[in-house]
Design a protein around this nucleic acid. Structure first.
Length: 886
DNA sequence: GGAGTCACG
DNA sequence: ACGTACGTGACTCCG
């Protein structure tokens, strides 16, 4: 008898989404649900080898059922942002894989499944329905069974008539009666309030159907229940109706459309790899082999052995432990100080408010799982002692995360032996994800049993190969002496946070909103109509169509309306100026006032410093980003008034490197003029102006200096005449002239930049002073534009990256030197450190900070740090460090 | 989710 | 003839 597999697309993708950690493709697209769905699909295909198959999806803008009952599914939770796009990815992939999809406007997957099921049965086809939704049990028949996902998606349970009878003592047709009585919160089917599964089953066992229950309601035991049945009789009948699937969906397909068809293997592989779904791709090949012939299975088996399969076989077995066993084990660890691999899970909104829930731990013999809620207090205390013990070395992915969670409970963490996330980042800073599950992606063949214990065992395995790779690329020192120690400092900075004056911020927000409101009406007046100013598309139509302004620049999608374009149109129409001001204020209000208030709990802000994001080695800051708080324009700069020390009456000390990138360029290039500028401590931009314009230092005017500054600035980015011209609003020819003059005078810089590119092309990579690596595949790309981009990266990365290296070293030294003093580092903004300090400790702390930063990593020109002090991040005044304390 | 815009170093 | 300076993150609109 031929077999058909019907999958409930919506139900299964939802299951997969909530069951799996948030995986992403290399491009950062969320793919966990797609991954989970396809894994289930191919497993099932391999097992069942169906002759027909189909995936049904909801398409419910206006469901037929809405007409019946307005509340139906009205309260369903909105699809999460990271799930929504995955429907389209999945459908796209299914199409390439020649898996039939059925959906019809106005109907749910359920209804389509019921319809297809009927048709298949009529054609003597055996049906297996795969879903997470118990509703489907109503479709069970002698020829149809239902495969239900149980916990998560790892376990499934197969229901046929017999099993349904065993489990519920019900016939398939009674499933809708069951729902009619007990309702279903997720589908917003009301049922009878107060009647749950137990009562509903009891009633059905006795009376068989909702109708019959209602007919005999007077003899039902229990006054309360009788009353409920009386009161909600109609609602129960309606609920039963809602629970019944529609069997006659007018969806157009023939049985032949659903017949299994061999897909284009290469196209499938390509699209799966496009979404970074490597595991699924290999599963796909296996399942294909399973259906297309035995020869290929053997072929496949060989290949499998050669890849990750062996490693899986050799990882430590998981060992179950009782309380006694734990105590004994932990004491042994405390004594013998083994290396432990760790993996963790946590609960809570985010890492700053979270608690770890489970840890997977792997020593050289076994792997274990420790659950905080299952473990005895004495076991937890001992485990915390081990976490804090520097002698017990740990292999982890994301040590900052572990430390953050422990800090939430005022516990500590030490003994990081190897942070695999940081290691992977140093080996290749271009990846998008360095989570444990991602790093293990190469090894994990069975994602569903990816427990913390298993993860820990695999991390331990991974550590060995990473050590080798780190040694090969000469990155061990940078990892162990810079990144790993820094991660713990970052965790403490995040935990400390920075205080926010909420009231003042709200006040500022109201002030902004008044101004924004005024500007809004002025803009509508000047434009002659109302529109959404925040929509670049609508704004473009107003400016360049209604008002007839000249469109100077285009974007991919239409007119450009950015600040640069508007600036040029300023004199053309009065509305332009208002728009610029409007944009500025809206930005301040939505990103900073609203954004910061939303992140502010307990009067403090805790950012997250990302240590594995940038390709150059810089940190980044998220949720909220505290590295881009306005400063350039006064309007925005005022925001800085609300940032204060977390300790009452303490001061903020800001220490920033002066011209660090130019100094690094001087070091690299050994250019005599540039080096001299820094050695004698003159104004570099003024000197550059003198050289480029061929005048004496005292003849340099402010315009000349401004231009020279732009050149110096541009150098670090791989300057072009076009870019310089645009920045200075001068002709390209003029820009070109300045650049040639510059390189003539600063020929050391010129030579260095050329050599940097040549060497990068040879090696395909660049390095910073501390050996940080960045591969630049763009350098050998066929497209000229891309290649030139690679060249600019080759010029910029050693400079930006070295600055980042030096700052990281400085942070480690500063943190160590101020330990025990009344001071804490709060923020890092690339070339600036913000420290909070008790006023009387200021002279000493400022001297330490300045010294440690300036001497963090000596290069051939001096590094200079300027200090400023204030009670908030706005009112900062220069602070002269006492030379004697230095 | 992608595009556009704009905040920072 | 083409497109154009490096590195980030957040918010908004829109399909």
């Amino acid at each position: 008898m031929p077999r058909m597999l019907i999958l409930d697309g919506n139900s299964l993708i939802n299951r997969a989404f909530y069951a799996l950690p948030p995986l992403t493709s290399n491009e950062g697209l969320p793919t966990n649900a797609v991954h989970g769905f396809l894994t289930m699909l191919f497993r099932l295909q391999k097992e069942q080898k169906p002759d027909y198959w189909v995936v049904a999806f909801d398409k419910t803008k206006a469901t037929v059922r809405i007409e019946q009952f307005a509340g139906y599914k009205a309260h369903r939770k909105e699809t999460p942002e990271t799930l929504r796009p995955q429907f389209n990815y999945l459908k796209e992939i299914l199409r390439v894989m020649a898996v039939p999809i059925l959906e019809l406007e106005g109907y749910e997957a359920d209804d389509i499944i019921a319809t297809v099921n009927d048709l298949a049965i009529a054609q003597q086809i055996e049906v297996l329905i795969f879903t997470g939704d118990r509703d489907a049990l109503q479709l069970i028949s002698p020829h149809s069974s239902v495969l239900l996902t149980m916990k998560g998606i790892s376990e499934v349970e197969c229901y046929n008539e017999q099993r349904l009878e065993e489990r519920y003592l019900l016939k398939p047709a009674q499933i809708i009666d069951l729902k009619g009585l007990m309702g279903d919160v997720s589908d917003n089917i009301p049922g009878i309030p107060g009647v749950g599964e137990k009562t509903a089953l009891k009633l059905l066992h006795e009376y068989g159907s909702v109708e019959n229950v209602l007919q005999n309601k007077d003899e039902v035991k229990g006054n309360k229940l009788k009353e409920l049945l009386n009161q909600y009789a109609d609602q129960a009948l309606l609920s039963k109706k809602l629970a019944a699937m529609i069997h006659d969906v007018p969806v157009a397909f023939s049985l032949d459309d659903l017949r299994w068809a061999e897909p284009d293997k290469d196209a499938c592989k390509k699209i799966l790899h496009g979404y970074s779904l490597y595991k699924v791709a290999s599963l796909f090949e296996q399942s294909l082999a399973a259906v297309t012939g035995p020869e290929q299975i053997i072929e496949k088996g060989k290949k499998q052995k050669a890849s990750g399969a062996e490693i899986i076989d050799t990882i430590q077995q998981e060992k179950n432990m009782d309380g006694e066993g734990w105590l004994e084990l932990l004491n042994t660890w405390l004594e013998q100080k083994p290396v432990l691999a760790l993996s963790y899970r946590f609960e809570g909104r985010n890492i700053h408010q979270g608690l770890w829930t489970e840890m997977g731990i792997c020593d050289e013999h076994y792997t274990y799982s420790l659950n905080r809620y299952a473990a005895a207090p004495s076991v937890l205390r001992l485990w915390e002692e081990i976490l804090a013990d520097d002698g017990v070395r740990k292999v982890v992915a994301d040590s900052k995360g572990v430390y953050s969670l422990l800090l939430n409970e005022n516990k500590t963490f030490a003994g990081v032996d190897l942070d695999l996330s940081l290691a992977a980042y140093l080996l290749n800073p271009n990846r998008s994800n360095y989570s444990a599950s991602e790093l293990l992606g190469d090894y994990v063949t069975d994602l569903f049993s990816n427990t913390p214990a298993r993860e820990a065992a695999l991390l331990r395995k991974l550590a060995a190969s990473y050590m080798e790779k780190l040694a090969e690329d000469d990155l061990e020192k940078l990892l162990h002496e810079v990144e790993e120690p820094l991660s713990l400092i970052l965790a403490r900075m995040e935990k400390t946070g920075i205080a926010l004056d909420k009231a003042k911020l709200q006040e500022y927000g109201q002030e902004l909103e008044v101004k924004i409101g005024r500007l809004e009406s002025e803009i509508y007046n000047l434009a002659g109509e109302n529109f959404n100013i925040n929509s670049p598309q609508q704004l473009g139509r107003i400016l360049f169509e209604s008002l007839g302004l000249p469109p100077l620049k285009k974007t991919k999608t239409g007119y450009s309306t950015d600040a640069e374009t508007l600036e040029e149109l300023r004199t053309e129409h009065a509305v332009v100026e208002k728009l610029l001001e409007y944009r500025q204020l809206v930005k301040l209000n939505s990103t900073y006032v609203k954004g910061l208030l939303a992140q502010c709990c307990d009067g403090k802000i805790h950012t997250t410093f990302q240590q594995t994001v940038t390709a150059t080695g810089r940190l980044s800051s998220t949720e909220p980003n505290l590295q881009n708080i306005p400063i350039r324009l006064e309007e925005g700069r005022r925001l800085r008034k609300v940032f204060q020390a977390t300790q009452e009456d303490w001061l903020l000390l800001s220490a920033d490197y002066s011209q660090i990138e130019l100094r690094i360029l001087a070091h690299y290039s050994k250019d005599p003029i540039l080096c001299e500028s820094f050695l004698v401590g003159e104004d570099v931009h003024r000197r550059t102006a003198a050289e480029v314009f061929g005048v004496a230092l005292n003849e340099v005017n402010s315009d000349m200096r401004r231009k020279a500054k732009a050149v110096n600035f541009g150098l670090m980015y791989g300057l072009t005449d076009f870019g310089l011209a645009r920045d200075l609003t001068i002709s390209r020819k003029e820009a070109k002239y300045y650049i040639s003059q510059y390189f003539e005078r600063y020929n050391g810089v010129h030579r260095y930049l050329e050599e940097a590119v040549t060497e990068a092309k040879e090696k395909g990579e660049v390095r910073t002073l501390l050996n940080r690596l960045r591969k630049i595949p763009e350098l050998s790309h066929p497209n000229r534009m891309t290649r030139q981009f690679g060249e600019r990266i080759a010029k910029n990365t050693p400079i930006q990256g070295t600055a980042a290296d030096i700052m990281k070293i400085a942070m480690i030294k500063v943190a160590e030197a101020i330990e025990g003093l009344q001071a804490e580092i709060l923020l890092q903004v690339h070339d600036e450190l913000v420290v909070q300090v008790e006023p009387s400790a200021l002279p000493k702390v400022a001297a330490i900070v300045k010294k440690e930063m300036e001497q963090a990593f000596p290069i051939s020109v001096p590094l200079l740090v300027d200090c400023k002090v204030g009670s908030n991040w706005y009112d900062m005044v220069p602070y002269q460090v006492d030379a004697l304390l230095f």
